[in-house]
Computed example of a mutant assay.
Amino acid sequence: MMKRTFLALAVMLAISPGPGATAEKLMIETFDDRPETRWRFIADTVMGGVSTGEVDFRTENGISYARLTGSVSTENNGGFIQFRTTLGTPPPDGTEGVRLSVRGNSQRYFVHLRTTGTLLPWQYYQAGFEAGAEWAEVRLPLAAFEPSGWLLADTPGAASLTSIGIVAFGRDHEAEIEVREVGFY
């Protein structure tokens, strides 16, 4: 019980900015301590698509990360695989964007954000990035996220964020992306 209490306190301190701290230091995930309980794999098969894939969680040289792999197919009105987590609380006021540490197969990938205003399953905000062969930091300002439809606000607000997903999307290709950090700045 004491170990669980200590772990909960450590997690709260890691994701909660203290007095005088900024959103710059807000980390929501480093893929340590059972990330499979927080992240789930989703494919276009939920709507009739035929894309296949998986997310698995690994540790290499003391660094934990998530690895999304699979075949994205636009057949049958499909075209995505992703892994997503629900945010327990939105990021703090002053949050300007999403920060990732990624590597991959030199392809274009996306972050999808859902908000309190994305009520339908196919609604989201999207911003793209490249995932090269070496670990690199990616910063995506909230203003760079585009709505998936005309019923959504032009830009997602930090206070309304409810989930974040890492997505291989929109074209036929083989996906391979690894993510070792997800946070906000």
Rank of each mutant, 00 (worst) to 15 (best):
G18M: 06
I63K: 06
G62P: 00
E130A: 13
N76K: 11
V46K: 07
E137V: 15
R34L: 11
L26E: 08
G18C: 03
E24G: 10
A133L: 15
N61A: 11
N77M: 14
G117E: 14
G53D: 01
A131H: 01
T118S: 07
T59M: 14
P121V: 11
A133Y: 15
S71E: 13
L100G: 08
W39Q: 06
L68E: 01
V50K: 05
R67D: 08
L68D: 00
S64M: 03
G62R: 00
S71N: 12
P90A: 09
A66E: 02
Q126H: 10
F31W: 03
R103W: 14
Q126R: 14
G94S: 08
R114C: 04
G53K: 04
R34F: 08
G18D: 02
L87T: 02
A66G: 05
T69H: 06
A23Q: 09
G53L: 07
T45L: 08
L120R: 14
V138M: 05
Q123S: 03
A131N: 01
F83C: 02
L87D: 05
E54T: 14
T89N: 10
T95C: 03
G70A: 08
P19N: 00
F110M: 07
E54F: 11
T118C: 05
S71R: 12
W39T: 04
P121F: 11
T118H: 02
N77S: 15
G97W: 07
P121W: 15
Y125I: 01
T115K: 00
H112Q: 12
F57C: 05
A21Y: 12
L120H: 10
S51C: 13
G104Q: 05
Q107D: 13
A43T: 14
E137A: 09
I81L: 01
S73H: 08
T45W: 08
W39A: 04
P92D: 04
E96D: 14
Q107A: 13
E134R: 10
T115V: 04
W39G: 04
T52L: 05
I63A: 12
T115H: 05
Y124P: 10
S106P: 00
